[in-house]
Nucleic acid binder design. Structure first.
Lengths: 137, 137
DNA sequence: ATACCTGCAAAGTCTTTGCCTTAGG
DNA sequence: CCTAAGGCAAAGACTTTGCAGGTAT
């Protein structure tokens, strides 16, 4: 957590209560959260206006600490970047539950192939599985 | 193309000019398109209202012929389902260009593992690579 | 004939911005 | 102090819906 704060400081952000709280919530959630979810979060609701959350997320994304994700069955979500430039998720198409997958990422090899064959740079990837979770079946 | 029409008919959709045109455009585009892109498409703009396109996409998605995708640097896009329940894309984070990847999908094996370990059903997946294309570097 | 589709316009929803105030460094 | 950050409210950008009239079957 202090590490996150320091990274913000290094990037010239001012350490405000809002920023601190948002980081904390995202850090503890460990799962991507939407702007709205942040907005109604008990820890945030009394502290920050929607616009503040929005701009804070924007700043965090700008310095590469946050990653914007778009899942097909919900809107944009944000998660603290793991620094590895890859994200793997499993999403229930019925209830929307998001699960992170801790796989020793099997896509890196494929990614290298793609880099070589296309000439793209600064490559990252998202691998998302959709399905119906046991509880919803 | 006739195949697509038949599938619609089988699912109880009425074969209207709008539906036909939208299918045609999506079929030829081969790339995911947003509602807006469809709306301003020369073949469609004179035929269909935005609401019609919207509802047509909704119906197509409902019968599983269309897949809704959300990319991190653009809004929702739709592509005719390939029936294989998987999609692989490469997207330039600078210009937004979308490229389809024709890989003999390397993720199916991984998907099987995920199914076995999580109990999810009706699994599909999206694998998206983000990077900066040669032209934008 | 009768559902189903469509167009139009308006209502929603969520995101983004302007402007003035507050407060971190 | 100076400038970034915050609050409020309003503007935007899309998406979605109601309803009256049109059309495939």
């Amino acid at each position: 957590m202090e590490e996150l704060i320091n990274k913000c400081r290094q990037n010239g952000l001012r350490i405000t209560t809002g920023l601190r709280t948002i980081l904390e919530v995202l850090h503890q959630a460990k799962l991507p959260m939407s702007l709205q979810e942040l907005e109604v979060n008990p820890a945030i609701i009394a502290i920050c206006d929607r616009a503040t959350i929005f701009r804070t997320l924007q700043r965090l994304e700008g310095i590469g600490m946050l990653r914007r994700l778009n899942f097909s069955h919900s809107g944009a979500k944000f998660s603290l970047s793991n620094g590895d430039n890859h994200e793997e998720y499993l999403i229930c198409t019925a209830c929307g539950e998001i699960t992170t997958l801790n796989m020793s990422c099997p896509v890196h090899k494929i990614q290298d192939d793609v880099i070589n064959s296309t000439g793209y740079k600064q490559m990252s990837h998202e691998l998302t599985f959709y399905g119906v979770c046991p509880a919803c079946q």
